[in-house]
Design a protein around this nucleic acid. Structure first.
Lengths: 645, 645
DNA sequence: CTGAAAGCGCTTACAG
DNA sequence: CTGAAAGCGCTTACAG
């Protein structure tokens, strides 16, 4: 159905028909009416292509966005779309993937289709070739720097946005504020970063380069950025991410690291995409009038006065929207950190001991039925933490358990001894560590340790826990967690001057780890193994070996000798201290009791001799009771039991 | 710059220039080269409008979506965009707001621009006028019912999606499941609702109209829907929302109401938009291949063979993605299902098998570190129940587990095989039964069974479970629970005429228990032990012993002979049936598979020979797979594996 | 007020 | 192989 057919049906010329239908030019009212009627009747619709070919304007605008699935862009497109439709224009959409070749291809497509104008949204700056390609086209650049000569620009006040985001955090009392920036070569990212720096400087705070990371505006990059920030072990209580997606990624990383938003860290984003409202907690962010950006761009593209808009700037206001992700800096920060300064941190294993009584150990291929079974809290780390706590010293446990009932049980049991378990990670896809202890009727036992969560502790957890140590602190470790964790923790604790105590059990060769250790606690067998690793073993003489190790590494070595007591040495002669005679019932928890008490005593400032004496008494008490943790005495039980001189 | 100018510059006619540039028609190689060069030099770009006016095809496709900011659509648009660009097409985008007038306006625009085809995505059905307007246009409808005559349709299997979402919840033990539907006049919403109802009915659950609400696919409506559900005070433990946005809204409402997802209520959505991953907890949902929908639509729109695609259907698969928003139903509600008749009831043990790989078995006094560890559902009772269920027979499990995560795990795993676990008691102060399996590097293993809850089963549970039996029923038992339970159950089952099958493992003397047993299933060793207890043992000849037992107690005895197959006897001559030769990988589950299948087959009414034959095949299949329960085949796996005569 | 004609920039049968 | 001409469907100066 063409205008020609309409003209014929109406018995008039094509010219007249065109005039009647378009409303331009003079036609008698009667022919106009009739023509319109006939056209409607025939279902005539003008061919826009022909009209455009003749006329010049295509009533089509194009919008090029980097990635439609980034929720920022659909909101903007929506605004442009609405204006286009309202003005009988149509919207050509292109996704550039922020890629040069794709952009060039799309610009070519648009240009060949005689679009009235082309809106370029976000993304990287164009290279010369692309700019050349755009020559003669009406261009509006949106949400980015204007690098196209003669183009109009629509955008928000990015720098101001960065500023108000940061000021919000500062007003809440935050001082140590991290920054996750966008790609450095993206203009808006740079502006936001400037706003951040400006606000910090104006508040008299120095942006810390160690607290600044760069992402690429995706949620995944935000996650990575936060993980990296945490790993740096530089203290911060808030973070400003240069867009919402990265902020959301950062929140996830904080969550995974067991930190709370906003209780531990406040988070601010930028954009105020719809998503910012969906996430929990709601994201505090800088509101951009995203839809208005799209509208304004479309208006400019449709506007016929090309010269009028050329080079014009249209900057929209931004506004801070406070939601749940930010709050006052926890008041206690200062005090809390000082408290932490007077604490024994135990980094180590948490196990549930499954004790099974069997008539006899099963032979290969055999099935035996257990006569009874029982479960207790255990693991060298947890046992020693309990000993530290019962010694009356503030204890903090770092480690990992599974997200299972065994894990619940362990955390509850530590909490009963007032041990801080906030640093115990819960790992969803690993079970809590287990020791399977089989006890035969004659009292013999075998132990199988299944590491579980203990061996899947997140390094960022270890690092962030150790990051808060000061020289007031004591770090106590054993070897039931991966050696690299122990080594990394020892290294940084040593670096800040914290006391590092290592119970080298189960025994293995230690290498450079010993460079960061102040006190090494071992039993005779362990001492020989460590000495062997050091190449200084004195066969069958643990105490002499201890002295050799102490000499070589310049540290204290304490050797437990069972019922004989213990010896300690700093390299020269070893001092031996005898144990009180007790009625041994169960020696399971004696070693851990000794070590925990020793750590607590040294932490309190006791000299080595007094510390070892106390530890020996604690250990001696422990063997008089059944069970590892149940047998660990409190300070007053010890003084009741062994009247002090 | 037009082709005319190029022609002039090249000193040739427009015709030749066109031919040289388009590549159609014959031109001398030299002029072609020259023309192309000159065109490039002049920066000539063909006017697509003119080309289209002449040619007919516009290389433009249009996509109409209801609302770009609903994240479902950008993902779909992205797919369409990619295909369009790849094919040198351009994408016209229109947002209809799901509004008739806007849609009509947009369709007009598109039509006047001679688009090659128009994709209509989602939204309400079109009215007659709109459908008329589309006449003569190539139309592809996406993600909705096809109401446009001659249009192609692209969509996901909505009903199946609703079904798998619901089945997931049912498998987790949920029975009181709420439903938040989409707009009733939206086809996809209706299909999803049907899938929900179907799954409920197939599971024997009645959808409760009080637990059904309608939303409009927005997040706000999901929030309102959940608020309304909660206000009704009808108990539910899970909800299926017909799209992700509503599911997310529902999660927020639950959160506001102080309820935990998934601890109090499990939530499943539909679509798997990116957002589903962002929210906390991650949303379990039905994955649609959204981008592929867009791709397929674009392909069809670009495809030149209009008749070829007219009326074609393109249905994509959906898939359940389990994230954090769903978990096992928290607690057994009082409404245990009434199960009567025509069922195999398994009374027996439920264990978690803890498999630990050790370098060597620990010697007395030694501690070894496990190299790896893994947990599986196990226990003879549970294994045999699974075999019965996979044989296609309705199975009900009676037994006891602890109120711990092992217990959760076992119940969930049985539920996945559609085994009725309402009769499994949860005992708070006993742990779930365990088998501690130690595997040495050389493959040798030892097993320690810790009965736990299995030995603390309440007699009233056993009695009430058995009380409902009729002579239509089969009761299957083993000896990993206390003998008095087995005997009491056997006695009353026998009394009402139910078939009683006993797998006498682990072996022991049975006494009068055998008086109530119809079929005794044993391996050779067990047969000799039982025979010994009966005083009829024929040393070293299990089959002869079996015949003696059968004769003495007037029952069937089935003896499994490992790779040799099995024998059965009712007292006279024993029949032997050989096993097919298979490549044995793991024999752990073979016995339980055999027994479960035998019970299922007899329950179905098969004669003893056919039942044993089937059971042998099932057992033979099982040894070709690793793991006990994983290796238990379904009926169809058996017939695939062993072609039936 | 009305109409014949030119022309937008291209493609393509037709003739040479 | 090459070119003059027609024509896609419309608009619009120009003439009447």
């Amino acid at each position: 159905m063409t205008i020609k057919e309409v003209a014929e049906a109406a018995g008039i010329s094509i010219t007249t028909a065109s005039r009647a239908l378009s409303g331009r030019g003079r036609v008698s009212e009667s022919t106009r009416q009739r023509t319109i009627e006939i056209a409607a009747q025939l279902g005539y619709e003008p061919n826009e292509l022909a009209r455009q070919l003749r006329g010049g304007t295509s009533s089509t605008i194009a919008l090029l966005v980097p990635d439609i699935t980034n929720p920022f862009y659909p909101e903007l497109i929506k605004g442009a779309q609405a204006v286009a439709n309202r003005n009988n224009h149509v919207l050509l959409l292109g996704q550039t993937n922020d890629d040069k070749d794709t952009t060039s291809l799309l610009v070519g497509q648009m240009r060949r289709r005689n679009v009235d104008g082309i809106g370029i949204v976000g993304g990287h700056l164009l290279d010369e070739q692309l700019i050349e390609q755009l020559e003669g086209l009406k261009v509006v650049v949106v949400d980015r720097l204007n690098d196209v000569p003669g183009a109009a620009i629509v955008g928000s006040d990015q720098k101001r946005g960065g500023q108000i985001a940061t000021e919000h955090l500062i007003a809440l009392g935050h001082e140590d504020i991290a920054f996750i920036g966008g790609p450095e070569d993206l203009d808006v990212a740079e502006q936001r970063s400037r706003g951040f720096n400006l606000a910090m400087l104006e508040a008299g705070l120095a942006p810390d380069s160690r607290l600044s990371v760069t992402g690429d505006f995706t949620e995944a990059s935000g996650r990575r950025a936060m993980t990296s920030l945490l790993a740096r072990r530089v203290h911060f209580t808030a973070v400003f991410a240069a867009n919402d997606l990265m902020a959301i990624g950062a929140m996830q990383a904080l969550d995974s690291a067991g930190m709370s938003v906003p209780d531990d860290v406040s988070v601010v984003g930028f954009d105020d995409i719809h998503l910012a409202e969906y996430v929990r907690p709601g994201l505090t962010t800088v509101h951009q009038q995203i839809e208005v950006l799209g509208q304004r761009a479309a208006e400019l593209l449709i506007e016929s006065d090309d010269d009028g808009i050329a080079g014009s700037r249209h900057e929209l206001d931004v506004e801070l929207i406070a939601r749940g992700s930010t709050r006052r800096r926890p008041r206690q920060t200062g005090t809390a950190r000082r408290n932490q300064g007077r604490q024994v941190t135990i980094l180590g294993s948490l196990n549930v001991d499954h004790v099974t009584e069997v008539p006899h150990f099963p032979a290969p291929g055999e099935t035996v039925l257990a006569e009874s079974s029982d479960s207790h809290a255990g693991g060298k780390g947890a046992n020693q933490a309990v000993a530290v706590a019962r010694a009356g010293t503030s204890a903090r446990m770092i480690g990992a358990v599974g997200a299972d009932s065994d894990g619940d049980f362990l955390l509850a049991s530590l909490a009963q001894d007032n041990i801080d378990t906030a640093g115990v990670q819960r790992i969803t896809d690993k079970h809590t560590g287990r020791a399977i202890i089989s006890v035969q009727d004659d009292g013999e036992n075998t132990i199988t340790v299944v590491s579980g969560a203990n061996h899947n502790l997140d390094m960022t957890v270890t690092e962030s826990a150790v990051a808060s140590l000061t020289q007031q602190d004591t770090l106590l470790m054993q070897l039931e967690i991966p050696l690299d964790h122990v080594e990394a923790a020892a290294r940084s604790a040593n670096h800040v001057g914290a006391r590092v105590i290592l119970n080298a059990a189960p025994a293995q060769h230690l290498g450079r780890l010993l460079d960061f250790v102040d006190v090494l606690v071992v039993n005779e067998q362990e001492c020989l193994t460590v000495g062997e690793g050091e190449g200084v073993v004195v066969p069958a003489d643990a105490v002499a070996t201890a002295a050799a190790i102490a000499r070589k590494r310049s540290l204290f070595v304490v050797v437990t000798l069972g019922a004989e007591g213990a010896a300690f040495t700093s390299g020269s002669e070893a001092d031996r201290i005898a144990a009180p005679r007790v009625n041994a019932v169960d020696t399971t928890g004696a070693g851990d009791t000794f070590t925990g008490y020793l750590a607590a005593a040294l932490h309190e400032g006791k000299d080595m001799r007094s510390a070892v004496e106390l530890a020996i008494q604690a250990g001696a008490f422990a063997v008089t009771r059944r069970g590892a943790q149940p047998g660990i005495p409190t300070r007053s039980q010890i003084s009741d039991h062994f009247p002090q001189p």
